[in-house]
């Protein structure tokens, strides 16, 4: 687990995002998405959907990264399903 210093702000911020890709180009999209900061691919559904999480990194807020997902070739849509944002001290104290 990263220490508090590695977070952009004093918050733990994470988005669960469902990415709909264009049929046929899933591997390329996965490659491009994996290169984005704080983005992790967890599951893939048979119909070209990807379950990803996006977190703040030391330099890139999750909101910026989420915006960049739309610019990836082969991405038709990205829907935010889950968002959690909590002061980091609360997270660390309960860890």
């Amino acid at each position: 687990m990263p220490d508090a210093q590695s977070f952009l702000a004093d918050e733990f911020n994470i988005c669960g995002v469902l990415v709909q890709t264009k049929p046929g180009g899933l591997d390329d999209v996965i490659g491009a998405l994996s290169a984005l900061p704080g983005l992790e691919i967890h599951e893939r559904a048979g119909d070209g959907q990807l379950v990803v999480t996006i977190e703040d990194t030391a330099t890139d807020p999750a909101s910026e990264t989420l915006s960049r997902v739309f610019g990836v070739d082969g991405v038709l849509n990205a829907s935010l399903v889950y968002h959690h944002c909590e002061p980091i001290e609360d997270i660390l104290s309960e860890a």
Binding site: G16, L18, E43, V51, V52, T53
Partner: peptide
């Protein structure tokens, strides 16, 4: 929390 985010997102995809 991350598990929650993944579970909710997967559920929305019907996974």
């Amino acid at each position: 929390i991350k598990t929650n985010a993944v579970a909710a997102t997967a559920a929305a995809a019907g996974l």
